[in-house]
């Protein structure tokens, strides 16, 4: 098993799928000659040429729509949107066309595109380059949303997403492209639906996704070593559809739930997971579920303010302690 960085895992998935199927293409800003802002398509332009590795103009709605149109005829476009903030510009085509065309055509057409984009806050990129948009995507019928927390998931989710008949949005993270992790040498396809218990525990469940899985794991270590509390950590790699059974199973075991999310709390992953807990296993709870979320502000530039706007490992630990005390 090789250790790959997150970007290398994504690059490998692209490469394998493009080698297999001449209808797989990738497109986006600076992904070709320049190899991609996060190197996710490095070297592919030389290998597959400009017809299949397409440097697009800075026209997010336009090139996303173009990819969707091509997908109607069987082309499998992997569209990189350089920053999720720019995906707002492509929302018309993603929501109004890709997510709805199968339904409104009575099943005649489908848009099997993959849109990959880094979300999350990085370091001092300011309000317009720090959006966390997963909450927006996950509320749309007809669109699958996944979010890898490890290189293995980044590889396997992209592989499955390219093959899947549905449009899939993959929410990556600006700060995770250099994260290292083991990826099996053999080809594999990660499920697009489900969740994974990444740390077993008995006292409380910490739900995370993408970068917040790592925060939850760090908090679980602190809780175990310093407080004797064994937290279970569940990785919600699928944000749409959320894994109702997986969420209920863990809460039914630990009887306490905290959702750790990098985004603002309103109408988000946390509020949705709480609703599922209410619907599926309310009477299993020993305490009210909590959310550890960002503060509801546009992300500020100042380093100290930026840090204050985002949840930290300590916030997760404190939330667990306050919940256990009740």
């Amino acid at each position: 098993m090789a250790e790959l960085m997150y970007w290398e895992a994504i690059r490998r998935a692209h490469d394998e799928e493009m080698a297999r199927d001449p209808l797989v293409i990738c497109m986006g800003e600076d992904i070709g000659v320049a190899g991609g802002t996060y190197k996710a398509t490095k070297g592919l332009f030389d290998k597959y040429g400009p017809e299949r590795v397409i440097d697009t103009p800075i026209s997010e709605n336009g090139f996303t729509g173009l990819g969707i149109g091509a997908s109607f005829l069987g082309v499998r476009p992997v569209i990189e949107i350089m920053s999720v903030n720019f995906a707002w510009l492509a929302m018309d085509q993603i929501f109004n066309t890709a997510a709805k065309v199968r339904y409104m055509s009575g099943g005649q057409l489908t848009a099997p595109i993959v849109v990959r984009s880094p979300g999350g806050t990085a370091h001092q990129l300011g309000a317009q380059h720090s959006a966390r948009m997963e909450k927006v995507f996950m509320g749309i019928a007809g669109l699958r949303v996944v979010t890898p927390s490890t290189p293995k998931q980044a590889y396997g989710l992209l592989k499955s997403a390219i093959r899947c008949e549905d449009p899939v949005f993959i929410n990556e993270h600006e700060l995770m492209y250099n994260l290292k992790g083991e990826v099996p040498d053999q080809e594999f396809f990660h499920p697009l639906e489900g969740s994974e218990v990444v740390r077993e525990g008995r006292d409380v469940t910490l739900f995370g996704y993408n970068i917040s899985v790592h925060w939850a794991l760090q908090a679980a270590e602190v809780l175990s070593k310093q407080h004797g509390i064994e937290a279970e950590v569940v990785d919600l790699y699928t944000l749409s559809p959320l894994d109702r059974a997986g969420i209920a199973a863990s809460v039914s075991k630990t009887h306490r739930a905290i959702i750790v999310e990098e985004a603002e709390p309103a109408v988000g992953v946390g509020s949705e997971v709480m609703a599922i807990i209410n619907e599926e296993c309310f009477f299993e709870l020993d305490a009210a579920p909590l959310r550890v979320s960002a503060v509801n502000v546009p992300i500020p530039y100042n380093r100290q303010l930026e840090k204050a706007a985002l949840p930290a490992v300590k916030d997760v630990v404190d939330a667990v302690l306050s919940q256990v005390a009740k």
């Binding site: 996303t64 149109g69 997908s71 082309v75 085509q93």
Partner: peptide, 21 residues
């Protein structure tokens, strides 16, 4: 399609697929 202007890029994408094939 009901969004005014929505089909413009879709048509270009269909053309891209035709060209690839």
């Amino acid at each position: 399609y009901a969004l005014v202007g929505g089909p413009f890029p879709l048509a270009a994408g269909i053309a891209k697929a035709i060209k690839m094939k």
